[in-house]
């Protein structure tokens, strides 16, 4: 097992320091700082419009913060273009999957390995990844757009794995899935993590996400209002306020 409470490791894999983000005149992040250590599953929780998804976009370079820095594997990546960030070992499972619907599942998976030129090892990885997702294997030559939501989520996760990332960012991986798939997806997240990939996950489904995460941050209108180990957060009454807009937390 990992040591989820040990946040003082010398160098986190990913660190956001004092991020301020604006959309036009609206401030989305207020001095946001968080860290993801190597080997961890960290989840970012929060209600609607709390700034969760924007955090993901900041990490992936799709939105530029007005202030603060993003560090990945010891190097600043603030201001880099998305493909450059991906090249450094970041994988993405975007919100609502965002598969290439008119391409086959196989093509989608190989798009995940777009930046890799080692054909032989990509082929090996494809086999290995498919072993992890037997359902996906059956649908390999189907157009991705024809799959069910749960199957698409599997493909999106497999696609991210194909890039051999150090870190996978997952934006609401359980959104819109049936309860059966929700559990399956979260189990897979845990398996992927155990195989050595660090996971940073944005989730609305707090109670389930905290079951597999080591640590969590709770975001409310762009500020971190709570942080701690998964167990601590699960028991914290404040988390309910963060979601349901209770008076104390406001």
């Amino acid at each position: 097992m990992h040591s989820p409470t040990n946040t003082a490791l010398p160098e986190p894999l990913l660190a956001l320091d004092h991020i301020d983000t604006f959309y036009g005149a609206i401030q989305v992040h207020f001095d946001l700082s968080l860290e993801v250590g190597r080997g961890e599953i960290v989840c970012l929780l929060g209600g609607n419009a709390s700034g969760k998804s924007t955090t993901m976009k900041i990490i992936l370079g799709q939105v530029q913060p007005k202030g603060g820095t993003v560090t990945f594997a010891g190097e600043a990546i603030t201001g880099l273009a998305t493909p450059k960030i991906i090249r450094r070992g970041v994988g993405s499972v975007p919100e609502a999957r965002r598969l290439f619907g008119a391409m086959t599942v196989r093509e989608n998976l190989l798009m995940g390995a777009y930046l890799r030129s080692d054909r032989a090892t990509v082929a090996e990885d494809l086999e290995r990844t498919l072993d992890l997702f037997p359902r996906v294997k059956q649908r390999l030559d189907q157009r991705a757009g024809t799959l069910s939501g749960g199957e698409q989520q599997m493909v999106a996760m497999a696609r991210a794995l194909m890039g051999r990332p150090k870190l996978i960012c997952m934006d609401e991986p359980t959104m819109g899935l049936s309860p059966l798939y929700v559990e399956r997806v979260l189990e897979l997240v845990r398996d992927i993590n155990r195989a050595g990939t660090t996971i940073f996950m944005v989730e609305q489904n707090a109670s389930l996400a905290l079951q597999i995460a080591h640590r969590g941050y709770v975001l409310q209108t762009g500020r971190v209002v709570l942080t701690g180990s998964a167990q601590e957060l699960l028991m914290d009454p404040g988390i309910r306020d963060a979601y349901l807009g209770g008076e104390q937390a406001a």
Binding site: V182, N205, S207, L208, L234, P237, I239, R240
Partner: peptide, 23 residues
């Protein structure tokens, strides 16, 4: 409602939250 916002209580988390709130 609590479930819709906090997630499906498959693992009994929501009950815990409700219990925590009640205390």
């Amino acid at each position: 409602v609590i479930e819709a916002y906090l997630g499906h209580p498959t693992l009994g988390a929501a009950e815990k939250v409700v219990a925590a709130e009640a205390s």
